[in-house]
Design a protein around this nucleic acid. Structure first.
Lengths: 347, 347
DNA sequence: TATCAACACGAAAACGATGTAGCTCAACGC
DNA sequence: GCGTTGAGCTACATCGTTTTCGTGTTGATA
């Protein structure tokens, strides 16, 4: 086992000083050509690489981004991570991932674990529990300490920072409008409780679309699922709720705020003998593997997770590398969405 | 914006030495009770946290694990990451994620980017391209430098290190046996090219099962997909290949080495008017969201990704924290698998 | 011959923390 | 009165780099 060489050992070996080695490797003009060559050759031979930790300490930059998400077993979040990773890597940054598991406490712990010098900035999608208890101290404190945060998807209006979102309201309007245009008369929505910002906004879009077409809003058609936890932990619960919903409501169009809700609704509808899209048209939100490979393939809204990730990384790295007295105003990037037409709608 | 305080500023503020502050905070008996209290109170007030980077440099340990996987938009890998993350966090470790995108070059770059002090050890599932070009220098060199590696799922026999795998051969045997028991007479397999270890082993299990039942092996029934790249990049290609396969072969049982192959096969079969499971029974490998939410829900083999992740993290951290002259023999943990019976098989 | 760049290099501080070794002052024993 | 002891604190080295500020040796110039 050959240990990684340090400047010191190279210096000793070559009988020069540490500074000389450092400068030679960085091609400083202070060092003579001959010495440079000698040092470089030696460094290459022993495969010298500067120790990142030492550099981080010196530069007070780690070139590492902390990404904290509710769960990773989730197509949308993984595409976002891909985007972050790609952009970050291009810029020479690494990515540390922390999972909050939708828990407020774990989110706080993760933040604290990393906000001690390990990372330069955060990209975060807030846990449902955090949104529900409305305790944002850990976030504001982190920002206060000079560590920038970029929020994506689930954002907090009260916190001032860069954000990457989709236009949930407008997008949902478009989706519901499509349902209307396809002839649906009784359009329902399966959403989340209002504390989840995206759920609230998408419900708002749903209402807007109906109003615009002068369709009365029937509160019974609005189902707000209360899933505080991981999406897969309470699948039966979800199925049950949707089942009850179908028992008490007759709908011919359904807008679901995520693909799991959409897929589950399809499953329940099928059990009830409904044919999709003949008897019931469905549009989901978030284009993931489930939508693509569902039967029938689900018409859905793509929110371009990869681009959201890229954009979030870009915002963060921009801010990190241009600390213009941090007086730069905070930006909110709206990533455009797109309806992917598949087979659960007629149009 | 209040900057994070360091020992130095606390020391100056309280008019004691840096060492005193450090020791007071660590409850050293060298320091008088009074001073301790004073320092602790001050530290709490200003929310002092030791700088991780400085500690890493001093201790030559980063308490960070590097995880390099082919792609993250993939249910199996994300469950593994969840497992890694959970175990690592419990032990006070962080997780840096690197994506190889199935590319040899990106794998090498990722390894080098992290093997300069940023991490204490690696957990890796090797890129397909790496397996295909059989160039393992970056891996052996990393190990040679004293950075331990744990491989999972896609492992390399020639490299000596800790490994976490499932018993692909035995498991596949069981699956195919199940198909035989369910009355299938013409059983096919959709696998990968042989350089992907898991594909080769699962094909081996397939053959074994047939041999055990004295069924002649028909090479035509063995389809080896050559997808060097990301699973989603060449979906049409995959579909085409499977389509051709069905054109030239009559099968009533199918074993697919991953869920995407299985789902795609179901789709093609459906297009050909085959009823599942009446006309064709299918078993997949890897229990993901696709299998669970497919129509009909796919009978599949769960390889317990979460446990694999936990196990990998455990092996790595064990080795990191017990550097018993690194003479500890390398271990290979075999995580047990399980057939999840759903609706694409009769039994 | 004294002066002065230019050149090539080294010493030392700094980043933030820890731990060893040493210092100072008081109390105590004999 | 002198050595010993211990409590309580500080100085300093260290981890691996970078960078600023010297410093000694040239060779050229006035």
């Amino acid at each position: 086992m050959k240990q990684k060489p340090t400047l010191k050992v190279i210096a000793k070996e070559l009988d020069v000083s540490v500074s000389t080695v450092s400068k030679a490797l960085r091609d400083s003009k202070e060092i003579g050509e001959e010495t440079k060559q000698k040092v470089k050759a030696f460094a290459k031979l022993y495969n010298y690489r500067p120790n990142n930790i030492a550099l981080s300490l010196k530069n007070k930059k780690t070139k590492t981004l902390g990404v904290i998400i509710p769960e990773i077993v989730h197509h949308f979040f993984t595409t976002v991570i891909s985007g972050i990773e790609q952009f970050a890597n291009e810029k020479g940054y690494n990515v540390i991932v922390g999972l909050s598991n939708e828990s407020f406490k774990k989110e706080v712990i993760n933040l604290e674990m990393l906000a001690n010098g390990s990372i330069d900035g955060f990209i975060i999608s807030v846990a449902k529990e955090t949104l529900s208890v409305k305790d944002y101290y850990h976030l504001s404190e982190t920002i206060d300490q000079g560590i920038p945060i970029v929020m994506f998807d689930r954002v907090i209006d009260e916190i001032d920072c860069d954000k990457v979102i989709v236009d949930d309201v407008k997008t949902s309007e478009k989706a519901v409008q499509k349902l209307i245009d396809s002839g649906c008369k009784h359009i329902g929505i399966i959403s989340t409780k209002d504390y989840v910002s995206v759920g609230r906004l998408r419900t708002e879009g749903y209402s807007n679309a109906l109003k615009a077409s002068k369709i009365a809003i029937d509160e019974n058609l609005i189902l707000k699922i209360d899933d505080k936890f991981n999406s897969n932990d309470n699948l039966e619960f979800l199925e049950e709720q949707i089942h009850d919903y179908f028992e008490t409501n007759e709908v011919d169009g359904l807008f679901a705020v995520n693909e799991l809700y959409a897929i589950t609704a399809m499953k329940v509808a099928r059990q009830k003998g409904l044919h999709i899209p003949k008897d019931l048209q469905i549009i989901g939100f978030t284009d993931g593997v489930l939508s693509k490979h569902a039967y029938p393939p689900l018409t859905t809204i793509s929110q371009h997770g990869f681009e959201m990730g890229e954009e979030a990384a870009k915002l963060l790295i921009d801010r990190l590398e241009n600390p213009n007295e941090e007086e730069e105003p905070f930006r909110t990037t709206v990533v455009k969405t797109e309806i992917i037409d598949r087979e659960t709608t007629k149009l």
